[in-house]
């Protein structure tokens, strides 16, 4: 059976203006215990961090360790 494309709103939000992934920063991706963050690539170059997988324990290392304060951890919709 084929897979569906079901939408899911994700709790981790990254402020594109503050994120310095384009300068090579991967701190939030590195520290996430569940490994749910990735760096979006545009035209072959890193652009910004984003939450790729909706598997969040809302624990906050990504927000706490971000050097520019670009990351905000919200509560997942299902439990907020």
């Amino acid at each position: 059976m084929p897979l569906a494309e079901s939408a899911s709103i994700v709790p981790v939000v990254v402020d594109k203006d503050l994120c310095i992934a384009d300068k090579g920063c991967t701190v939030c991706v590195d520290v996430c215990p569940l490994d749910v963050l990735r760096i979006a690539v545009k035209d072959g170059a890193p652009e910004t961090a984003y939450m790729k997988y909706d598997e969040c324990w809302y624990c906050m290392p990504c927000e706490a360790d971000c050097p520019t304060g670009a990351v905000t951890v919200n509560l997942p919709f299902l439990l907020k």
């Binding site: 215990p33 569940l34 598997e55 969040c56 324990w57 809302y58 624990c59 997942p76 299902l78 439990l79």
Partner: peptide, 15 residues
């Protein structure tokens, strides 16, 4: 499964 139904909304670190 937590009452929220969210697989990762566990008491323990979900990892």
């Amino acid at each position: 499964l937590p009452t929220s139904g969210y697989l990762y909304g566990t008491y323990e670190n979900a990892s």
